[in-house]
Write a protein that binds this DNA or RNA. Structure first.
Lengths: 226, 226
DNA sequence: CTGGGATTTTAACATTTCTTTACAGCGCGG
DNA sequence: CCGCGCTGTAAAGAAATGTTAAAATCCCAG
């Protein structure tokens, strides 16, 4: 697995680089935006870890430029906590995940792993419309039908379904759902997710008591299977 | 995309400039009215962010002067909260949007983006006439028709519709509507907006119970989609 | 100035959506 | 078999928004 790390601060660059290398990843580094863009466009990486504050070209610029060139390598963005707007902006530019500095090394590894797993095992691009059984979903227009009959999904239900569908085939941990769908820190004492999952099953599964598509993996999380 | 920032206070100038640069815009700055006017008239910008309180020449003067010279670059005006300036004055001078200081960085970005999108989409920012479905709106003459039949929109309704239309595609928070359409401080305990939105839907949507164009984004605000 | 209609705001109630709570059941390792 | 931890689910509660109508305000002809 090849990872490109774009980070200007030498200390952090070495630390993270070593961390990834120790984990068995083949890492390459770049110290500013231009170099990062060049290497990213050239070598074939599985993941790019991109700092936002960079000389010459910001991480956001690099990110957008890559996407415009049609390069869809997974991108993990590193932002300083003080930067308020980053998350929104980054999402629009096509980044895949975020981490605010300072971060725990183990958390970086977890994110990297999650991204790589997602990209490689079943790298599903986000879908606009999706079908399974007799259910049709149009995420853009927020329209859901089962056997032709319109089904009313509330906002959170639709977001949850979308996230599960986008990661279909993989087990999605509760914590990940809390982070990505709900924008919680990591309280993890809420049963909200379970309730929404139950509602989704109620509305979409043929037999909600024996869910075929929205499965629970005990102790791990939930998994959507088409 | 080239943006000209005219702001005399150095701190704010740098902050906003960096913010825009991080988003990938090519930014240039000016520190007073004269310099701003000169640069605006010279270089071809896609957007001018203009503070009102400036040395040598106020933002309003710059704005009017530019319009008189036939320069129709989009203009985003920054006003201090304490300045009891009539928005109508600004409107007549040809500004396209307003933001009162202090403002949230993300809000500035949202405005900038909305303006630029508008500029790129249909040549010039302020929409004088607008159509969707079978509805035609002429904001200048305050005339609205649905399927050819004239519809009576009261003043506030029209202002609200105009603001939503001018920011179509983006989520407009209640607070923003309160500040820009109603000129409230930020009481935010009034349900007035909801009522007016309901009326607009009643008068313009085909199915007011299932609004297609004037959508509510729970917890965020309203959004107009053409 | 005044009355009445149009407009806007406020208030009250209805509905939808989201979260929390409580309890029941199930699985799995002693 | 027991008990603990995890999950399912119903129901209560909380929050946001929709809807309606009355009250307040504005505007202008007379």
């Amino acid at each position: 697995m090849r990872i490109l790390l774009v980070e200007d601060e030498p200390g952090l660059r070495v630390t993270v680089s070593d961390l990834l290398a120790a984990e068995g990843y083949e890492t390459e580094t770049a110290a500013d935006g231009d170099e990062g863009l060049a290497k990213a466009a050239g070598g074939h990486f599985d993941l790019i870890v991109l700092d936002v504050m960079l000389p010459k070209r910001t991480g956001f610029e690099v990110c957008r430029e890559l996407r415009q060139r049609g390069i869809d390598t997974a991108i993990l963005i590193l932002t300083a906590k003080t930067q308020v707007v980053d998350r929104v902006v980054g999402l629009k530019l096509g980044a895949d995940d975020y981490l605010t500095k300072p971060f725990d090394p183990s958390e970086l590894l977890a994110r990297v792993e999650a991204l790589l797993r997602r990209v490689h095992k079943n790298g599903h691009a986000p879908v606009r419309t999706f079908c399974f059984d007799e259910v049709e979903v149009d995420f853009e227009r927020a329209e859901v039908r089962k056997r032709g009959e319109p089904v009313n999904l509330a906002g959170k239900e639709l977001q949850l379904l979308r996230y599960l569908v986008d990661h279909r085939g993989t087990i999605v941990p509760r914590e990940e759902l809390l982070r990505q769908v709900w924008e919680y820190s990591s309280d993890v004492t809420s049963r909200t997710i379970d309730v929404h999952v139950a509602w989704l099953r109620q509305k979409l599964e043929d037999n909600p008591q024996n869910p075929v598509h929205i499965q629970t993996i005990r102790g791990k999380g939930y998994r959507f299977t088409p």
